[in-house]
Design a protein around this nucleic acid. Structure first.
Length: 542
DNA sequence: TTGACAGCGCATATGC
DNA sequence: GCATATGCGC
DNA sequence: GTCAA
């Protein structure tokens, strides 16, 4: 460790969660100074390696200067991810437990080269406004800004890759400069520059914040989202789907949903959900959620199902046999499959989100090797939430095709070669493990596994998919998602007597292709009679 | 009241 | 040894 | 979970 590490044993909770270039760079800087960084309280308690008992937890208000007027109770509750059920109680107890400081504290400490006392930078909690009308004003303002942000980012996207390239290089330069922080003057200068972030950065931040707090039915959506995730994690997948559909319905409304009668008329909202909406409006709680979260059975199933390759059946089976912890499973279950063993080995890594910036690194890394060492004519895309523009991803989904190549055996050979290159020592054993073994030497068009971009990073889940060129359009749609968006357009296809899959669009009765060569997404949208939506506009149901 | 809610490839278990 | 069933992830 | 048969 260099001598300049001053935040060893400190654990920062950075609020609000900011996703702009400069915010990420700052976070990396804090980490280089020994701090552990998180964005909310719920993530610091979970997992083995996250919090030591001697860690000093400090809540840091990022961009305090520009966000000062926006900070209120709702804001803190949302950012810190405090349970809604008992938020008034929790907020107070948390404030008593952990100091809240302005980001100046970090800046000044870095300048001084030592940790300064917290008191003079403390944020006075008595300033936190609980007045809901002020909060509403803020929400309005935020939604304005986020609309503006979306428009601007669309325009930027149309500029094409050239702009992005430059942006990336900028970040690298900045990072390098900050990394060699032997001279603090440089940081001082950069940091002042960063405080006046350019419009795009600021707007990106607002988007990230507003995502959590906007809309007239934000409270209902908050609870339903929690319910959806609970059900997903205990294997009640149809309940999960329906909650997500209900959220989709509700988030389109521009008025607050007040009564049972009003709610039950809406699509995908029946008796049970209408009752829950009423309960939320009356009590600002949801007893069922509280029950699910605190029930030993559900929380145990949840824990087990987070192991890759453990689903509802096996989780229930283990629960019924009396197992309650991952340690129980490791010790007492003797018929774990090889994938389940990997799932346990990488339990923490694979349950962590991947920052968008890291996915970009993986993309550049893999693309470079694929084009230089395998076949220079390949076309490579990153799918999933990355393509939809989200700031974090669950895994890395890489789609590979080759212009005008529909030969599956050729594609399979390309995949085998790529995987063996990525596994080799020449590339630091980038591929660490495989979840699919067949097809390494032959016909498979997909590979699932774990990969490591550098020694300090976590092992990430990565999927490769080889796609014949004529299936590219359908594959792009399918693997971009999100899942709810896919279900909806599949249903549209079915209503028109068609069948949409990752392979293509076919007539339901005869199975014949509707479109001979569908390497373009737009062709398929057109055929279905729906207007083209950019990947960023396919994030349905939050 | 009851079944559908997408359907496929892979690893593994079970049956013959 | 081969065919089929099950569980899982996508 | 909802919906439709």
């Amino acid at each position: 460790m260099p001598e300049s590490v001053i935040f060893l044993d400190y654990l920062f909770i950075l609020v609000p969660k900011l996703v702009s270039k400069s915010a990420i760079v700052k976070r990396q800087l804090y980490e280089k100074q020994g701090a552990k960084c998180f964005y909310n309280l719920s993530s610091i308690g979970k997992g083995k390696d996250q919090k030591n008992s001697n860690d000093k937890v400090v809540i840091v208000l990022q961009n305090y200067k520009s966000l000062r007027d926006k900070i209120n109770k709702d804001f803190l509750v949302k950012c810190l991810d405090i349970e809604y059920d008992d938020r008034s109680f929790s907020l107070k107890s948390i404030v008593l437990k952990y100091p809240i400081v302005k980001n100046d504290w970090i800046v000044e400490s870095l300048k001084a080269g030592k940790v300064l006392p917290l008191q003079q930078f403390a944020y006075d909690i008595s300033h936190v406004r609980v007045d809901s009308e002020i909060s509403q004003d803020y929400l309005l303002e935020l939604s304005d800004r986020s609309t503006k942000a979306r428009k601007i980012s669309e325009i930027k996207n149309q500029d094409g890759p050239a702009t992005k390239q430059i942006k990336l290089e900028d970040t690298d330069e900045l990072e390098k400069a900050l990394a060699s922080l032997s001279n603090r003057e440089k940081f001082k200068r950069d940091n002042q520059d960063n405080d006046d972030e350019d419009d795009e950065d600021l707007l990106a931040d607002y988007m990230a914040v507003s995502k959590n707090v906007s809309g007239p039915n934000k409270e209902i959506i908050f609870f339903f989202n929690k319910m959806a995730n609970e059900y997903k994690q205990v294997g009640e997948s149809y309940k999960y789907v329906n909650y997500r559909k209900a959220i989709n319905t509700i988030s389109k409304l521009d008025y607050p949903l007040k009564t049972y009668d009003e709610a039950i008329k809406l699509p995908n909202i029946g008796k049970s959900l209408a009752l829950k909406i009423e309960e939320i409006n009356k009590t600002h709680k949801l007893s069922k959620l509280f029950f699910l979260q605190n029930d030993i059975k559900y929380s145990t199933l949840n824990k087990f199902m987070k192991i890759y390759s453990v689903g509802p059946t096996i989780a229930k089976n283990w629960y019924d046999r009396g197992y309650r912890t991952i340690e129980d499973i490791e010790k007492k279950v003797d018929n774990l499959t090889s994938n389940q063993k990997l799932g346990i080995k990488y339990y923490n890594d694979w349950n962590s989100k991947i920052p968008r910036e890291e996915v970009t690194q993986h993309y550049e890394f893999v693309k470079n090797i694929a084009l230089k060492e395998v076949d220079s004519k390949l076309e490579i895309f990153i799918m999933g939430s990355y393509r939809r523009g989200l700031p974090e991803c669950g895994d890395i989904d890489i789609l590979i095709t080759k212009k005008n190549c529909n030969d599956k055996s050729e594609l399979a050979a390309i995949l085998s070669k790529l995987i063996s290159r990525l596994k080799s020592k020449d590339h630091n054993n980038y591929i660490q493990c495989s979840l699919i073994h067949s097809g390494i030497n032959s016909k498979s068009l997909k590979f699932y596994g774990g990969c490591l971009i550098n020694e300090n990073s976590k092992c990430r889940r990565i999927d490769f998919l080889m796609v014949p060129y004529e299936e590219l359009g359908a594959s792009l749609i399918y693997f971009t998602g999100n899942d709810i968006f896919n279900r909806i357009i599949r249903t549209i296809a079915i209503k028109k007597g068609l069948n949409l899959s990752n392979i293509g669009l076919t007539f339901k009765k005869t199975g014949e292709k509707c479109i001979e060569n569908s390497h373009d997404e737009k062709t398929i949208f057109d055929y279905l009679g729906i207007k083209y939506r950019n990947p960023e506009d396919r994030n349905i149901g939050y």
